[in-house]
Design a protein around this nucleic acid. Structure first.
Lengths: 136, 136
DNA sequence: CATAAATACTACCTCCTTGTAGTATTTATA
DNA sequence: TATAAATACTACAAGGAGGTAGTATTTATG
């Protein structure tokens, strides 16, 4: 029922960056602004770059900048990179082949909620979340 | 987005027992029927007994039996014992004081789903789930 | 009373997540 | 060209979840 800490961090960083999508941010700035451990963030950012959300500039005055497709980056695509989206398709009781044909006791109760949340994450984009006035 | 393995086990055990609520089950029987590790189950059951879901009979021919209030035992009360229900009230991004007044970027999207699932777990009882034909 | 079969307890092991530390590499600039 | 400031890489440490193992305790029964 929770995101991993790493997913929380990733979403917060990217939403924060999306509030000033043209700006370049150093890891140190993000660390100080968002209260995310510096070294941990320094390991997360390259994976977000590899995933195609951001791009790094090396050397002095370097940092990270959002890619221009950020308007279409969904929460699901972020979770997918960090945690994986598997749990949003799987049985809540862990049965491999639970489904409409052979449901577990919770299947009919849980399925609609799980699907609704999955669809939510697949629909909401960084742009949707980048409005000011939110706690980041 | 997942229950812990231990919660999965606890729910499966209790739903299975609720299908024959008068019967007494040994840990070994439950282990073999439900494919839950014997020793792990042997540690889980006393905690379910302490929580008031089941009662143990010691010695030869002993085992566990559901208590008579099982009809009113909710999924939430089981999760509460094993995992805790805290995450069903907390902010999805981990903000301590996220709320309607000072929402995080996901608060308005996530809150309704989180609340709906919490209500579901607080509503569904072992009796509701004990119907036959389910995969246990 | 001895034995068998059951729960109860305690210690340990492994893996994953989170976080920390140090060092290498890259690049702007005085 | 030397320095400073940034990312990149790699190893390690702490803690919790899941699982294993062994032993103690309880009790029915021959």
């Amino acid at each position: 029922m929770k995101l991993s800490k790493t997913s929380e961090h990733a979403i917060r960083v990217l939403v924060y960056m999306a509030q000033n999508p043209e700006e370049q941010f150093s890891v140190n700035t993000l660390h100080e602004t968002l209260n995310i451990p510096f070294k941990y963030l320094g390991r997360l950012m390259p994976s977000l770059a590899e995933a195609g959300f951001i791009v790094a500039t090396h050397g002095k005055n370097g940092g990270y900048r959002l890619l221009s497709n950020y308007e279409f980056v969904t929460i699901a695509s972020i979770i997918d990179v960090v945690d994986g989206m598997d749990s949003y398709s799987e049985c809540i009781l862990g049965f491999e082949n639970c489904g409409d044909g052979k449901p577990c006791p919770l299947h009919n109760h849980w399925g609609p909620h799980r699907d609704a949340i999955k669809k939510l994450w697949e629909t909401v984009t960084l742009k949707d979340l980048a409005k000011r006035g939110f706690k980041i």
